[in-house]
Computed example of a mutant assay.
Amino acid sequence: MSLSFTKINNMSRTISSEIVLLIKDNLLKGALKPGDKLPTEKELMAQLGVSRTPVREAIKILESIGVIQIKRGEGMFITNNQSHFSLNPLIFSLIMHSNNIEKLIEFRQHFEVLLINMIITKKDKDIRKIEEVYQSQVERMKPHLSPEELTNIDLEFHYAVLDETNNPYVVEIGKTIYEIIKPKMVHFRKTNSIERTLQSHKAYLELLNAGDDFHPTTAVQRMIRNNEEMIKE
C-alpha cells in the first residue's frame, strides 16, 4: 500500500514535527499499518507542499525511533516489528516537544537522578552489569569508530542503568527519551569526546556506589554541565 497525503496547513509546530504527527495519526487510525510502503521523498514533498529539508528531518526522526525502515532500491516502509514501540503514542507526544532542547536536557538530568535514586535504594542492588558495560566501553571506544558507532556504545551504559531499575515504566520512558536524544548527540565529533564520556560514566558509577552520600542537587548540576555540551539542536 502506498498512501497519498494531503498538504500540511497547520503550522503551529515545525514542519518536520507536523509530518511526524501526520504519520502518527495515520498509524493510530489504521490508515497506515506495519509493512505499508510510504511515498518517496519527492512524492512526499509534492503531496505535502513542503521542501526537501523538513521531509528529510522527519524521515530521520521516524527511522531513528524505529517507525520506518528504509530498504535500498525498494523505498520506505512502516516497520513490521510490532513489538517495537513505534506505535506507542507516548513517543510521538514527546517528539512534538523534541525541538525544545533546554527542556529536554532538564528532563533528562532529573530523570537520571531518579534512576540513580531507584538503584541505590534497592535492597538487592547489583550494579555489576553496569560496571561490565563500562569496562567494555573502555576497551571498545576507539577514535577510528564513527560518531554513530560511538553513540551506540555510549547508550549501552544508559540502557544497562535502565534495566537495573527493574521497573517497566521507567525502562520504556527511558528508552523513548534516549531514542529522541540520540539524533541530537553530536559530542563524538569532538576529539576529546571518548575520554569525556568515559569520565562521565565513571562518575555515574561512583554515584551509584555513593549510598547515603548521594546528593541529588550536586548530581543534577554536574550532569547538566556535561550534557549541555553533548547535545545540541
Results as ranks from 00 to 15, higher is better:
His158Phe: 11
His158Ile: 02
His158Val: 02
His158Lys: 07
His158Asp: 06
His158Trp: 07
Tyr159Glu: 13
Tyr159Ser: 07
Val161Phe: 00
Leu162His: 10
Leu162Asp: 06
Asp163Trp: 07
Asp163Gly: 09
Asp163Arg: 12
Asp163Lys: 14
Glu164Ala: 13
Glu164Gln: 10
Glu164Asp: 11
Asn166Trp: 00
Asn166Thr: 07
Asn167Gln: 05
Asn167Phe: 03
Pro168Glu: 14
Pro168Lys: 08
Pro168Gly: 11
Tyr169Glu: 07
Tyr169Cys: 02
Tyr169Val: 09
Tyr169Thr: 09
Tyr169His: 12
Tyr169Lys: 05
Val170His: 00
Val171Phe: 13
Glu172Lys: 14
Glu172Asp: 14
Ile173His: 03
Ile173Trp: 04
Ile173Asp: 02
Ile173Thr: 12
Ile173Met: 14
Gly174Cys: 07
Gly174Gln: 08
Gly174Ala: 08
Lys175Trp: 02
Lys175Tyr: 06
Thr176Leu: 09
Thr176Gly: 15
Thr176Trp: 03
Ile177Met: 15
Ile177Gln: 11
Ile177Asn: 01
Tyr178Glu: 13
Tyr178Ile: 11
Glu179Met: 14
Glu179Asn: 14
Glu179His: 09
Ile180Arg: 11
Ile180Phe: 10
Ile181Met: 14
Lys182Glu: 10
Pro183Val: 03
Pro183Asn: 02
Met185Cys: 03
Met185Gln: 06
Met185Gly: 00
His187Ser: 05
His187Glu: 03
Phe188Lys: 02
Phe188Gly: 06
Phe188Ala: 04
Phe188His: 09
Arg189Lys: 06
Lys190Cys: 00
Lys190Asn: 08
Thr191Pro: 00
Asn192Val: 06
Asn192Ile: 07
Asn192Cys: 02
Asn192Trp: 13
Ser193Ile: 04
Ile194Thr: 12
Ile194Leu: 06
Glu195Asp: 15
Glu195Met: 12
Glu195Leu: 13
Arg196His: 13
Arg196Cys: 04
Arg196Tyr: 11
Thr197Leu: 05
Thr197Asn: 15
Thr197His: 05
Leu198Cys: 09
Leu198Trp: 12
Gln199Phe: 03
Gln199Trp: 03
Ser200Cys: 10
Ser200Asp: 10
His201Arg: 12
Lys202Pro: 00
Lys202Leu: 14
Ala203Gly: 03
Ala203His: 12
Tyr204Arg: 05
Leu205Ala: 02
Leu205Gln: 05
Glu206Ser: 12
Leu207Phe: 08
Asn209Met: 09
Asn209Lys: 15
Ala210Trp: 03
Gly211Pro: 04
Gly211Asn: 13
Gly211Phe: 05
Gly211Ser: 08
Asp212Arg: 08
Asp212Gln: 12
Asp213Leu: 10
Asp213Trp: 05
His215Ile: 13
His215Glu: 15
His215Phe: 03
Thr217Ala: 15
Thr218Glu: 13
Thr218Pro: 00
Thr218Asn: 05
Thr218Cys: 00
Ala219Asn: 02
Ala219Val: 13
Ala219Pro: 03
Val220Tyr: 04
Gln221Met: 11
Gln221Pro: 00
Gln221Asn: 12
Arg222Tyr: 13
Arg222Gly: 01
Met223Ala: 13
Ile224Cys: 03
